[in-house]
Every structure is written in structure tokens, then in C-alpha cells.
Amino acid sequence: MNEVYRYFLIFLGALLIYNILLIRFIALCPLMGVSTQVETSIGMAMSVLFVMTMATTVSWVAWNYVLEPLHVGEFLYIPVFILIIAALVQFVEMFIKRSSPPLYRAMGIYLPLITTNCAVLAAATEAVKPGFLKLNIAYHFSLPEALVYTIGVALGFGVVIIVFACIRERLETSPVPHAFRGTPLAFIIAAILSLAFMGFANLLGL
């Protein structure tokens, strides 16, 4: 397989075919919680992209240069990755607070939430530890490949959460059955969106 094509497949697979929210159901809490307004969704999407990319980079280095050479990866990867993410989020929060107060005001409230955002841990684990990825291509990612994968996942998250917020804002004022108001309706929207994303299945043999 040609090198560029391989990157393209990894990216597309992470973004559309195995979309993290609608096909794999990871990180539904922010989808339900934050997506009531388009503006907050954009903030969340940006913060996730940022944290996810950094988390995968650090986890990749930790896995390939520390855990794997010491043969402790198999039973230490969970605590190590989650601590990396927690520390990273804290660090990023402090850094942004100092360096760019407007950005902090925009992203600030979402940053602590991201620690428990399963998408970050999922992307890091899949991109770094072999054996979790269901995509039909790679078994072990190199660092650039892991990064392309992570960016694909994060953009997939962003696209869906923003589209979702747009639909929800519109439906806020429409008449729906009482029992379905709020969360149930949001899940119905998610079902229909997920139906649309299923159309991408088996695209390019992934």
C-alpha cells in the first residue's frame, strides 16, 4: 500500500467510517451534555482536538520507549495512560490560563471535563497499544500514523457534535410528544444521524 494512501485511509476511517460518536458510541456524555448550543459545541470540539493530539503523542512515546522496553505495558497501560491524560489536561489548563486569557475563557470550562471524556483515552489506547483498533489496516501505528488517526477521531467528534447542536437548536421550539422532550429526542436524532453514517460502512474496503 502506497504511503500517502495509507494515511488517507487511516484518516477517513477514523473520521467517517468508524466515527467515534455515532458508530462506536464513545463519548456520548459530552454529546448529550454540551450540544445544546452551537457555540459551546465548537468550544468543546476545539478543546478535544487539542487535548487528544497531545495525549496520543505523549502516550505513544510512553508506550514505545518506556512501557514496552520494560515489558510492563500489558498491565500498566491503563493507569499510565489515564494519568498522562489527567496531568496533561491540568497542564494545558494552566498554560492556556497564563498565555491566552481569551482562549481560556472560551475553552476553560470544558478542559477539566475532558479528563473523563472517554474519547481521549479511547483514541490514545487504540492508536498506541496494538490489538484494539478494529480498522482493517494497521496493527501497529508509527507516531505520524497515530497522530493522523487521532486527528481524524477528534475531527469526527467535532463534526458530529456541531451538526447535532444545530439540529437540537432547531428542535428546541418544535412540538414533540411530552414524554420524548429532552434526552429521548436527542437520542432519536442520534439514531437518525447514525443511520446516515452507516452509509459509509465498507467504503474503500475499511
Partner: peptide, 22 residues
Amino acid sequence: ILFPGAFLTFACLVALLNRYKM
């Protein structure tokens, strides 16, 4: 058993519970 089914089933369960509460 496909992906949309999960959302649909859960939406209906929550709606049922809401109805029961009302």
C-alpha cells in the same frame, strides 16, 4: 443490533420512564 438501534431502544426506554413518571 446495528448502531441506530441502540439509540432508538434507549430513547424509547427513557420516554417510557418519563411517561410513567408523568
